Amino acid sequence: MTQSRDAADVLNRDFLESRSRILEVAAALDRLDRAPGRAGEPPDRRLAQLRQAIEALLEPGPGRAETIQRLFSLDYDPSWQEKYGVLETRPS
């Protein structure tokens, strides 16, 4: 039976990688701010998604990954195969 790690163990294992990823996000946002033009004019859905995801990171408790995944996911389209030219294969 696998024992779950305590918070200190998780932090020790994940801190450097998490810090690195947060710095990557900060750098991307800095590049957006320095770029000519306005990314939000007209409003861009992707920029709004990034802002919502950052806000979700600040919410306490588990479930942040699922919340953020849902922010970036498309609603299910039952005709997606036809839309993207994917042929359905069935065993003969």
Rank of each mutant, 00 (worst) to 15 (best):
R51Y: 08
E41Q: 12
V86S: 09
L87F: 07
S4R: 12
L50Q: 01
T67Q: 09
N12K: 14
A53E: 00
A53M: 00
R19L: 07
E17S: 00
V86C: 10
D33F: 11
Q49A: 12
A53R: 03
D44T: 03
V25A: 10
A56S: 14
L57N: 08
R5G: 00
L58R: 11
A8I: 10
E82W: 06
A28I: 11
E59T: 05
E66M: 07
R46L: 13
E88N: 13
R5C: 02
D44I: 01
Y84F: 15
E66G: 10
E55Y: 06
L29Q: 05
P36C: 04
G37Y: 08
L29Y: 00
T89E: 15
L11P: 03
E41K: 12
R21E: 02
P62E: 02
Y84D: 10
I54W: 00
R45E: 15
A8E: 11
A65Q: 14
L57C: 15
R13L: 09
A26Q: 14
T67A: 15
S79I: 10
R21A: 01
P78C: 10
A28Q: 06
R21V: 01
A56T: 03
E59L: 11
A35I: 07
G61L: 07
A56N: 03
A48V: 13
S73Y: 00
Y76C: 03
R31F: 02
K83N: 07
R19D: 04
S79R: 15
L87Y: 02
M1C: 04
E88G: 12
V86H: 14
F15M: 05
D30E: 13
A48H: 10
S18M: 10
N12F: 06
R5V: 09
E82C: 04
E88A: 15
Q52E: 14
A39R: 02
R31T: 06
R21G: 05
A8Y: 06
Q69R: 15
E41C: 06
R45H: 12
L50T: 07
A39L: 08
N12L: 09
K83A: 13
I54A: 10
L29R: 05
G61H: 05
S18D: 09
I54H: 02
V86A: 11
T67H: 05
Y76E: 08
L16F: 02
G37W: 00
L32W: 01
I68Q: 00
A28V: 07
P43W: 03
L58K: 06
L29M: 10
S20L: 08
R5M: 07
